[in-house]
Design a protein around this nucleic acid. Structure first.
Length: 754
DNA sequence: AGTCTTACTATTTTT
DNA sequence: TAGTAAGACT
């Protein structure tokens, strides 16, 4: 603990905060909603508030729950809190992302939902493979009903807090099989001792609502709660927070900005923030409206734009930074001309003293990036694409992880399937199916099934040799876990398995993949156990890689949230592109409002200069299309913009797009959830035990009762044909086959003849 | 088991 | 247009 502030004087960490900011920091008790507009010092308020709670002894570090959405935000909060109050902040065990904290809680109470504390967290790729198996097992046409679409749907359900039992009848997939498929998937997860991202929160809800004692323990522990980006919370997260808050007088502080809610498609419910005062009657609402980032023209343009939205709490941003350049709006002939123009302006800005890293190109969708990349390469403008394909989602990284997961545990069937024949060892599809079928019949893991099959004649000799070597390798590497470092072990595994050789043989993509693997091995040096490493990668899907170069940042508008740049380019403001046609088609007026918030986020990223542009023609997926300027261009207040059109494609007034005022019915949560939320959560809690009772600790389906075999009995085998039983040893039979001779087989593969 | 060919699809993606 | 994924073919 740092020394108490000198009596009478305000603590140093309050210096430089404006009135509203310090109000938000000092109103520690009771529910508080901080509406923090773009650039108003939100992070500073949040971290200072956290530091203040600790510094004044209101709570000890482990008694504060502080949740964020991203690992980056969590890291930043921890660093800044440590900066203010020193090492005392290190005890902040409950500062992290929703998922990381929920995963911790689930580890402690896994058995209450039928999991073991060693459960694994599946990523979206594993999730889709598993769903594919579920769909195939249920004879669903996976062409018409893709695993991916079901994955999206399941995610959506879980985001709403729905278990299969709670799934509303209105939800459908594959002609009325939604619930069955959902249930089957959950059963498979349990059998694998695994859960997906959505489950982390959902299992928490099941535990909290079914076990008052557990919930009570956490409610007492968390004396203060801080929630970042509240506008992005989904229903499950909302319920989770409500349960932990324990009542309407909790010391909960939610910080957010309804105007920056851009993840509705991910399940975020702007309504959560809009109804905070109803959820917590008597809550303090503090608005941070003084902007420290942008010039008044930029703020004016952004404010005018967002004013067209209906569903908002309303804030008026202001700044003392008067003047500056007006937001420039330009029309060009086509996408190529747009890229050329922006590349030129980048060089101009650089001659005027800006660094490349001070500039960003923010696009709606990644297909827009190509034009810029091509132009930047041509004109030697250094650039960096932020986001893009994620490191941990690359095939080679996932392969390496699959090896490690299998070394960690024989039970990881998904890992087994992924790498049993990578690199090729001559274990074909048929053999793999045979293994999995045996595993399922006996209720054991695939590895166990392999071990068993090796003692029989079921597999071809060549396959058997290959699998036997594979099993021996895995066992040997596992034995090496204790004696060598994780990164050394991984190198050994990649080398000895033949994986690196396989990549070396691939002249096209091999080198890049080998680089990635090297990087992976590098990043492992920070970990001392395989367990902790695997846990880390499943929750923190990121790798800090050397940024720092002076380069123009190219990214999507979504990726830009929370960032700021002196000069921001906003290309592609055309109807259909931005706002995205699909967004409007799918979500109507709500979708449009979210697009508008995205535009608002984009404009407010700029500190000094914002340059909006649109093209009359654009090549989309190889097809030329004519574009109209975005309705958002019309909505920009003329006083804050300056339109320039060297080509005459823009005459200052784009065709009007009079949108009828929204009359979209607010059918928020599929019925029930809407009012009042707290009572709903309580009711939800009463119903849970029924589900809980079913979640017994069965981790694999019960083995099938073994058939009563008799010596001399005639049997039929898929591969060896007819024969008679010679001897019986538990589930292994020696059968004298009419054609194939005497073979040792496993009873699940034979049936009684005749 | 590996290679070639064809068909399909294509926003945003905090964990 | 391009990139992938599944199926057919050898």
């Amino acid at each position: 603990m740092p020394p108490a502030p000198p009596s009478g004087g305000a603590p140093a960490y309050l210096n430089g905060l404006n009135l509203e900011q310090s109000d938000a920091v000092l109103s520690t008790d009771g529910p508080v909603l901080v509406l923090a507009g773009a650039g108003t010092g939100k992070t500073r308020v949040l971290t200072t508030r956290l530091a203040h709670i600790l510094a004044t002894g209101r709570a000890r570090p482990w008694e504060v729950l502080a949740v964020t959405f991203t690992n980056k935000a969590a890291r930043e909060m921890r660093e800044r809190a440590t900066h203010i109050i020193g090492p005392g902040a290190e005890g902040l065990r409950w500062l992290g992302t929703f998922h990381a904290i929920a995963a911790n809680i689930l580890r402690r109470h896994a058995e209450l939902v039928g999991l073991r504390s060693t459960y694994t967290i599946l990523d979206t790729d594993d999730q889709e493979r598993l769903l594919k198996q579920v769909l195939e097992a249920a004879n669903v046409d996976t062409k018409r009903f893709t695993p991916r679409s079901l994955a999206t749907l399941v995610d959506h359900w879980k985001n709403r807090g729905w278990t299969p039992q709670k799934l509303p009848a209105s939800e459908d997939f594959a002609n009325g099989r939604a619930r069955d498929l959902f249930s089957a998937y959950q059963e498979r997860l349990k059998a694998l001792n695994a859960c997906d991202f959505g489950d982390l929160l959902l299992h928490n809800l099941t535990i909290f609502t079914g076990h008052d004692d557990v919930l009570g323990e956490y409610q007492r522990r968390f004396r203060y709660m801080l929630v970042d980006e509240y506008q992005d919370t989904n229903v499950a997260q909302y319920l989770w927070l409500r349960l932990l808050a324990g009542g309407t007088s909790a010391n909960i502080c939610c910080v957010g900005d309804d105007d920056q809610s851009i993840y509705g498609w991910r399940g975020a419910e702007v309504d959560n923030i809009l109804r905070f005062e109803r959820d917590f009657p008597g809550a303090r609402v503090i608005r941070l409206e003084r902007n420290y980032r942008s010039t008044s023209h930029i703020l004016g343009a952004a404010s005018g734009l967002i004013a067209a939205n209906r569903a908002r709490l309303g804030k008026t941003l202001w700044t003392e930074a008067e003047g500056g350049e007006k937001v420039q709006v330009r029309g060009v002939w086509d996408g190529e001309a747009e890229a050329r123009l922006i590349a030129e302006e980048i060089e101009q800005a650089r001659r005027a003293g800006l660094r490349y890293a001070d500039m960003a190109v923010l696009v709606r969708a990644s297909f827009q990036m190509r034009a810029f990349e091509e132009r930047f390469v041509l004109t030697a403008v250094p650039y960096a694409v932020v986001g893009g394909p994620r490191f941990f989602e690359r095939a080679e990284i996932r392969d390496a992880h699959a090896y490690l997961r299998l070394i960690q545990s024989d039970d990881d069937d998904l890992a087994f399937e992924r790498i049993v024949n990578v690199p090729k060892r001559g274990v074909g599809d048929t053999s793999v199916q045979r293994i999995l079928s045996l595993a399922r019949h006996q209720g054991v893991s695939a590895m166990a099934a392999v071990r068993e099959l090796l003692t029989s004649d079921e597999l071809q000799a060549r396959t058997r040799t290959a699998l036997s070597a594979f099993v021996r390798d895995i066992d040997r590497w596992r034995a090496g876990l204790d004696s060598s470092s994780l990164s050394a072990l991984t190198e050994t595994v990649l080398e000895e398995s033949g994986y690196t050789d396989m990549q070396r043989a691939d002249k096209a993509t091999g080198p890049a993949r080998l680089d990635n693997l090297k990087e992976l091995v590098q990043s492992m040096q920070a970990f001392d156990s395989l367990q902790s490493y695997l846990e880390h990668v499943s929750l923190v899907m990121e790798l800090d890689r050397g940024a720092g170069e002076d380069a123009v940042q190219v990214m999507t508008l979504h990726a830009a949230k929370g960032l700021e740049f002196p000069l921001v380019f906003l290309p592609g403001w055309e109807e259909g592109v931005f706002p995205s046609q699909r967004s409007i088609d799918e979500k109507g007026e709500k979708g449009l409002e979210e697009e508008r918030r995205l535009a608002y986020v984009g404009v407010t990223r700029a500190r000094r200069f914002a340059r909006i542009s649109f093209a009359a023609n654009r090549q989309v997926y190889g097809r030329w299309t004519s574009q109209l300027p975005s309705r958002f261009v019309d909505e920009l207040p003329p006083a804050h913009i300056e339109t320039r059109s060297d080509t005459g494609y823009y005459d200052g007034a784009a065709p009007g797009f009079a949108m009828p005022a929204s009359r979209w019915e607010d059918s928020r949560f599929g019925g029930g959830y809407s009012s009042p939320g707290w009572q709903r959560a309580q009711r939800f809690s009463r119903q849970q035990p029924a589900i809980e009772a079913r979640a017994t600790a069965v981790s694999r389906p019960a083995p099938q009762a073994s058939q009563p075999w008799a010596i001399g009995e005639r049997v039929f085998h898929q591969k060896f044909g007819y024969g008679a039983i010679v001897s019986i040893d538990a589930n292994k039979l020696i059968v004298a086959f009419d054609k194939a001779g005497e073979k040792k087989v496993i009873d699940t593969f034979v049936e009684k003849a005749g």
